[in-house]
Amino acid sequence: MNIPSSILTMLAGIALTLVSIWYGQNHGLMPVEASQDAVLIDGLFNTMMTIGTAIFLLVEGILIICLIRFRRPVGDETDGPPIEGNIPLEIVWTAIPVVIVLVLGIYSFDVYSNMGGFDPNAAEDPGVVQVAMLPDGDGALTPLMEGHSHPMGHHHVALGIGASPETVGKPADLTVNVLGLQYAWIFTYPDFNITSGELHIPVGKDVRLILKAQDVIHAFWLPEFRLKQDVMPGSLQSELRFTPKRVGEYPIICAELCGPYHGAMASKLYVHTQEDYDTWLQSQVASRPDGTQTIAASSDQEDPNAAYLAPFADQLGVNGHLLEQLRPQPTAALVAPAMSSAGMH
């Protein structure tokens, strides 16, 4: 009787492993991967799903076996075997989680670092980046001692995801300023003097978003890029940097509770081919009357902000005038001056 039971255990172990590995790869729970970061994170998630499934099956399996095999027969008033512990066994089930946790820790660390989480320049005063980075040009991360010129004087905490290790120190291909306010996102392209309610970017380019909030904390979330960053009011600014690799239309979501209409604070991200992107840029610049900053799309009925805010406009006290006011100036005043010069390099 003993031999079959150990074979059974082994077979169960193999089955458990196989099922876990299969499910870890085929759970189909994540949305499409629109950037390299997303691929990295999904790899990590699949690993965690595999391990998680294994632990789940193990624990639930033992519970079910207990339910079936170790029920007390009716009328049996005796106790079970007085086993109080088993040191080797306890060491094993302490050691295995330790190993799992260490592996997951290192793996996560690696992914985080590849995404650009350790870029010390993330979300800091770009004026300083230039001073610090350009002279030696080799990307050596000169400590940013000069960086005390911040308006409110906050030290640099890397808020967000910066440049990946390969691109660290290099300026991004495209920088867009993002302003979050109750309840809309406003995007300004400092290099082109464009303001828009939607984000348009070219595929395959290194994009850098500088995030600021106007009133309360918001959070900028791109599910298909697996990227999210809180957007702080006041002097703190944050950053997200990524390279889209898939053309398409993606949701932009505000993930931090920011008031009653938090759920409606959403926009769209368009990843274009270079040509489409250029066309879009052209149309934006063209429809701009005379170089003064006005939102290009605002004139047509498709204005995303207006359209989506419309149902709430009354409650919010948002009107065309207010939106108009909010568009270029505050963004520019809050983040643009230093940015636009950085974007040139």
Binding site: M48, G52, L63, C66, L104, S108, L227, A255, E256
Partner: peptide, 30 residues
């Protein structure tokens, strides 16, 4: 009691997933 173990473990496993910074960035506040 056994239901506790069965269900808590699921929450514990997702907890460890959430602890992983890159993954949490995606699912935080969801």
């Amino acid at each position: 009691g056994m239901g506790f173990v069965a269900v808590f473990v699921i929450g514990g496993i997702t907890g460890v997933m959430l602890a992983s910074v890159p993954f949490d960035i995606h699912v935080h506040d969801t």
